[in-house]
Design a protein around this nucleic acid. Sequence first.
RNA 1: CGGGGUGUAGCGCAGUUGGUAGCGCACCUGGUUUGGGACCAGGUGGUCGCCCGUUCGAGCCGGGUCACCCCGACCA
Length: 492
Amino acid sequence: MAKELSFLTKRSEDYSKWYNELVVKADLAEQSDVRGCMVIKPYGYAIWEKMQRILDDMFKETGVQNAYFPLLIPKSFLSKEAEHVEGFAKECAVVTHYRLKSKEDKSGVVVDPAARLEEELIIRPTSETIIWNTFRNWIHSYRDLPLLVNQWCNVMRWEMRTRLFLRTSEFLWQEGHTAHATREEAEARAQQMLKVYANFAEKYMAVPVVQGVKSETERFAGALDTYTIEAMMQDGKALQSGTSHFLGQNFGKAFDVQFLNKENKPEYAWATSWGVSTRLMGALIMTHSDDNGLVLPPALAPIQVVIIPIAKESQMAMIDEKANELSKKLKALGISVKYDNADNKRPGFKFADYELKGVPVRVVIGARDLENGVVEVMRRDTLEKENMPLEGIAEHIKQLLDEIQANIFKKAKDYRDARIYECDDYEDFKKRVQNGGFFLCHWDGTAETEAKIKEDTQATIRCVPFDVEQTPGVDMVSGKPAVARVLIARSY
RNA sequence: CGGGGUGUAGCGCAGUUGGUAGCGCACCUGGUUUGGGACCAGGUGGUCGCCCGUUCGAGCCGGGUCACCCCGACCA
């Protein structure tokens, strides 16, 4: 009681520090001793697993199948698609040797210089190349298409500066790769998968997103079009949360993936790729959390309801019974529940700890209240407490979980919508964009204007949004005519 | 790779004029507790990032080096 309630830095004081502390203290992840890498702890991984399962089902509903391709990619593969090389051949880890040997004095091991590889292997930064190299053998006829595969894996990009979940040298993700007989079909697939991502973000993560298409400069290396979902964090910055690429025939040509069409004529296959990563965890954390810690959407919370007993030892048997009964009822309704009757932690500690971990609903069963036949139910999103009779409480909690899911989405959406501005004056823009927020501005479509905005403000064009009513206007920077407004923001 | 900062117990930090290392949290033992992060008593834990130098003596002074963090360039 006497102590400061929050164990975290306040969000308003130092957003980065708050985020980092939260990730560590909520037991999600920590920085590894290995450069730029992250250790995902069991609690954090449980959330990721839930995301995986749901996404995986969503993919399968669209006909996608899972497969797995090698971690190591021959260097020559990365040289085959010119633009792809430019974008990806740089910050990669390279395997040059295949053997170690003991030092002369037995004090350790050294790389055996005799074991140098003839061709170096690259630890995949993304798998387009190795997958398209394989697709060549799988695709011969239009009847083999479309080919829809996905893999869950890790990739590695030697990032300069890393940040838990948002940017780490190694990260977990899924990458979908599809091959199609026609341009239209491939384009439709790229857009379809973006819709899947948007749906997942909003429905399960309760994170509202703006869907749109990237400008040429922001495009994926080797893509003709990159579609994106952009979420707004609580500091007003944008987070690119998922991307889907229409790759044209670039990889088909680079890896000679040809098929015979119905007219018996050879054609190059059309490609898409699409991915979301553990960065989604960062989006989840930064969208909903407050100064008490994490706030998890019920749909993704590993523990949806925690039951905490309060009693003297002599009364514990009775409380255990009531708690187990309730726990059973909740489980029957498909709710994951934890009864924490550990006696080495006091109730106050448990309250704070489960709030920090974002458990959506807390039920307190106390000897005192039980005499009146009631228990205390607290919802994490609003921190509101309510005394309720045990009778019928399981059904009530089930409804409450749905309500929390809907409420945190609405809260996040209201927060975001209040920070989306139309802006036509560049001086005004330059000042305001520093405080965060999404700015809808007319853009003349040139890379010069884009570069100037970035140089002046660090903000970038996040996308040309789909769901904004577009009217022609004047570019606020160049004064040239512009056909549409684009979304501009500072980003992670 | 540029600009700034920090390295002392698992974590967060203090360490005065150079005199041989301390606090809080955590951890362990015992006891009392249990309605919002318990209390008391006792205890474990250190090559002061690393190397070289100055000195009778270095956590502290000088030189070098490494690592990490923050701000840029790069990025899911």
